[in-house]
Each structure stands twice: as C-alpha cells, then as structure tokens.
Write a protein that binds this DNA or RNA. Structure first.
Lengths: 312, 312
DNA sequence: ATAATAGTGTCTTTCAGACAGTATAGT
DNA sequence: ACTATACTGTCTGAAAGACACTATTAT
C-alpha cells in the first residue's frame, strides 16, 4: 500500500484540492435537476351500517384523496403529497404535508416505490417517492387543514381479470374509487414482459377517469404491498383501534385481501398477536352472544419465541 | 354537479389560465431542488477453486464497487451509479452508468429503496434511487468501460449478532467486503424503535471503513431483499449460467441465505422450476458420479398450474 | 323458537425438515 | 476399497384448509 503523507481529510484530488476546498467550490446548480415530491397512499378501514339491525356493519377500505386546484389535472383527484424541501427528510415531508391536509399525527409509514418516468408530469421532470400510510379510523381525522384544500375519503374497489394477449398473458386491473357524490375509475394492465431470459412485471395505465397523474398505479401498488404484508407481518393492527373484537379484525383482513376467511383458522393465526382485554364489547341490542375485546400485543414475537422454548 | 362550459383541457385555474397557458408560464426552477442519482448493488456469484482435487469449488457472493477519484470520500469504494439525466428514466440511467463501468448488457434490475437523508452527501442534497442488479458470472464482465474508472468485485460477508440495549434489543450487523488486496468493513445496527403503538425497524451506520457514503447500508438492504426474494421467487436464476447442475444451484442459494440446505428438500423445492438439459456436466477427473445439467424453465408457473389441474 | 354472531374441536391435506439409503465416478 | 459428489425414498411433525359443533344474546 502507498504510504500517505496526507491524512484522509487532506488528501487532494486531481485538481489539487482538499475536501474542504472542493466542497467550498462545489456548484450544486451545475446540472439541471428534477423536482422531488412525496405522495402518500393513506388507507383506513371504516364501518358502513347495514339495514338489518342484527347484522354487523360492513367494513370498507378507504383511501385519502385531494382535489387538484390548479393545472395540470385541475379538478381531478390526486394523492396527498408535495415537494420535498431541501432541508427535510422524506418522512418529515410526509408528516408536514399530512398535517397541512388533515390533523393526523403519529401514523404508520412505509416507503413503497419511487416513480420517475420522464413524462409522468407535464410541468417538468417530477420524481415521486411514494409512501404507504395506515391509520386507525377511530382516531377520526378532521379533513381540511391549514390550507383550504379539499380532501376526502374514497372507498377502494379493485378487481382483477385475466386477459389473453398475443404476447403472453396479462391481467387487467380495474380500480374504482367510490364516494357518495362521484366515482373515479381507472383500468391498468399488468403484463409479464420478457427481455432475454429476464422476465419483468410491467404495470401500465390503460385509462384513468378523475384520477390525476399516474396515481391510480400508485394506489394499486400500495394495495398490493398492503396485501402481501398483511399475511406476513402485523401491519394490519395499524388500522385497528385500541381494542377490537376478533371478528372486527377478521373483517379488516378480509377487506384488504378481498376474500372471506374461515373463522376458526383465522383465530388460530392471529391468536398469538393479541391479548384478551378482559372486557366485552358494549353493544346496544346486539341480538347475539357478546364478543370479547382484544388488544394488540406489541411483544408477540418475543412472547411466541419464549412460548415455543418452554414447550421443548 | 356544476355544468361545465369548458372542456377539461380548457378549464381555467384561479389565475384564469388554461392548462396550455399555465404550462408555458410554469417556472421549473422556482424552488431549489435536490440532485437525484441511481446506485446499483450488482451481485454475482463466482467459484473459488479448492486445493483438494476431488472437492467442488466454493461459491462466493460478490458485489461490484467503484473507486472514488474525487471528493468526497476520495480513494474509498462506492457503489456504481451516477446522476439521473432529466430526459431518461431510472432504468435507462442504470443501464447507461453500468455501460460506462462494465460491458454488461441485459441484466435483471429491481428497484430497492430510495435514500434521502439530508446529510448523506456533504456536497448537496442527494437523493439516491437504489437498484438491485443480478448478473450471471459466466457472462464474464470486462471491468473498466469507456471512462478510466477503477472498478472491481469484492466478496461479501455479512454476520449478524444480537446486542442487548437499554431500550429494547438490537441486532449488530458486520459487513465485510474482501478482495485479494484489501478488506473494507462496516458495522451497522438494526433496532426496533417504537413510536406510540407503531414499531419501526431502523438501520443505522455505526462505522464504515473504506466504504463511501451510506453505501454499506444500501448493500445490506440489497442483500436482505435478495435473501427474502430468493425463497419466494425465481430471481436466483438470474445469477446462473444457461445450464447448471442442481448442486451448483443449491450452493448459490446457500451463499445467498448464509446457511446450508438439505439436498433432498432443496431438490424437491426447485424441481418444478427447472428442466433437464439432457446433458451431463463435462468434468475432468471428477472422481464421483457425473451430474445432470438443468436449465431454468421460464414457464414454470403456468406449467405447475397445469400439472396440478391435471392431477384433479 | 329464531336468527344472528361468538367461539371451539378435530379431521385432512399439504409442505417443510430430517435422515437413511443407493448410485457412480476416479484414484 | 475409499472417498467424494449425485440422487431418491420416506418418516415425522407443523401448519393450512375445511367443516361440524356448541354458546349466547334480543326479539
């Protein structure tokens, strides 16, 4: 190894500059640079009452959308989000933007994907770091923050359907965002494109009505990740209130996964992630056996390990 | 609903501008903007010969690194990558940068994570979209592309170790990048931080020797994702040559997962993803039963479905 | 009694883990 | 014969799926 007569910090570059000199001279505006934003896919699950007084309310998955007040896509609905300031981290930007539109504080955040297609915004090159946010519907959000921004929740419905294509098969995905007043919709197509021996999943936007930019794709991606992680982790509990019945929990899983689950098996699966709250759900005129309330056990992984150790 | 006298495109905003007028006036430089780069974690698996003539060569996981010729971190090793041009997509930038340093063409790419901490680069705010790239070692790469950039492969070794902390437990991760001439190393810590009821995994850099920026974290993240996906998908085949023996395939899985696998079970697991190549591995003085060659079957998912249908 | 939800027990099927056993080459 | 890799068969136990059965409440 070469013997250094400089300390690391003083090592000069090919122009003879030390690091301190180099940084002083560095021109951050030498190249044209893209805009960077964060967008949030904020999900929550709410109950919709049902006519039959004995039946349980139906759970619906909702996503938060914001009405665009300016070009481009003026009047259409977009994901909440905004530009990342130079002196803030992504998650700080997410929290700040969310505060401007809602009063949400401490929420679950997870980075989803970064969208950078050249033409995705007609104004200029805009790169969007998207985040999945999950909130508990009982901590009711007051929409409309400091700005006079129009924001509301839409019920999410997504259906998939195989479509036969000349070059291999594809899946057609229909996304509907439903509200008392309007229905937004989008059709996407997921195809398996093969480059040489490498096959890659490609999601393309076929049509979009009322949903701005490529935000339908971002919602689809967010829901897909939520589905994948629902069975592998405990993130679903971020959608639950402090205490809940196991049936309520099951309905939340079902609305995320888009399919019914068998009660006995579901309870076996989640049993080690919850603890009995030792209370019964207070219901007026339930007309059926009262249900136990449970809480999420944040230490379930450790507890499970100890339980299995004790068994052997 | 309000009746519109304008078509959507002609709808004026609050300043009375149509979309065309708005876009013409739009000043893309109004706000200060960050730099955006792509960085690639390029893995391959190579064989290291062994003294005993009968024993099989040992597989090693390698990652491609580039020597920094300028400040900051001059003389240290960094992931290959570079600035994203305004008129190119991320993957185009990745392919372009990879061409400048190697002669690699058609390779597997998958977006990993976007790193945006304010202080991660001393020059200015730099946001990095990281990509996982897998290449087959037999398609031998010639290092050093158009530029006179010094690039080479380092063997990756990562060990994890529990460390007890006052606030909950943490995992200490030691990363070593090994080469004939030098050893780079880094220590990281993965902790479970709890904010309210939300618990979040946090990876922090404890120390880094010879590895520039936060690139040790990016390598760790890339290897973690590779491990997770190795068992769930077929991406490992992107590390394999056209034809291979099942033992070779198993060794590649083992070096990724960092643990030995039982042969019989492994073969059961991968059997439906490969097809017999109807050849035997040409070996000089093997001293053991010759092994069959297999190829990856890109249609294994469809074939598996049909096979299960036929059974019922 | 009825209809609704709440909750448990258990059979079956599937799949991962462990391991014993056989096959085939070169020295 | 020995030793190395190559490959198969099968036992076992854990987990997932399916479903029957019991419990409790208001009307």
């Amino acid at each position: 190894m070469m013997k250094l007569s400089y300390s690391k910090k003083e090592l000069p570059n090919s122009a003879g500059l030390t690091e301190a000199q180099f940084l002083k001279k560095y021109d951050a505006t030498a190249y044209e640079r893209p805009s960077v934003t964060v967008d949030m896919v904020v999900f929550c699950v709410v109950e919709e009452p049902v006519k039959n007084y004995r039946k349980l309310p139906v759970k619906k998955l909702r996503v938060l959308m914001v009405k665009r007040g300016d070009h481009p896509y003026i009047g259409q609905w977009a994901l909440p989000g905004g530009f990342v300031h130079l002196n803030e981290n992504f998650e700080e930007a997410v929290v700040r933007e969310l505060k401007e539109e809602t009063n949400v504080g401490n929420i679950y955040l997870d980075q989803l994907y970064t969208w950078g297609e050249v033409d995705r915004d007609p104004r200029t090159r805009v790169i969007t770091v998207s985040y999945l946010a999950l909130i508990d519907a009982s901590s009711q959000i007051i929409l409309g923050g400091s700005d006079a921004i129009e924001a509301k929740w839409f019920t999410v419905e997504m259906t998939e359907e195989k479509s036969v294509k000349p070059h291999g098969n594809a899946i057609r995905i229909a996304l509907k965002l439903i509200d008392d007043l309007e229905v937004l919709s989008s059709v996407m197509e997921k195809s398996n494109n093969v480059f040489g021996k490498i096959s890659k999943e490609l999601l393309t936007l076929v049509s979009s009505s009322g949903i701005a930019f490529d935000h339908a794709k971002i919602i689809q991606y967010g829901l897909e990740k939520l589905r994948e992680n629902a069975l592998r982790s405990d993130i679903v509990f971020n959608l639950m209130p402090e205490s809940f019945t196991l049936t309520e929990l099951q309905r939340v899983y079902e609305v995320i996964l888009g399919q019914p689950l068998l009660m006995a098996n579901f309870r076996r699966k989640v049993s080690h992630m919850v603890t009995l709250a030792d209370e019964v759900k207070p219901e007026k005129s339930a007309g059926h056996r009262p249900s136990q309330l449970y809480r999420f056990n944040p230490n379930w992984k450790r507890d499970k390990l100890e339980f299995e150790k004790a068994k052997n």
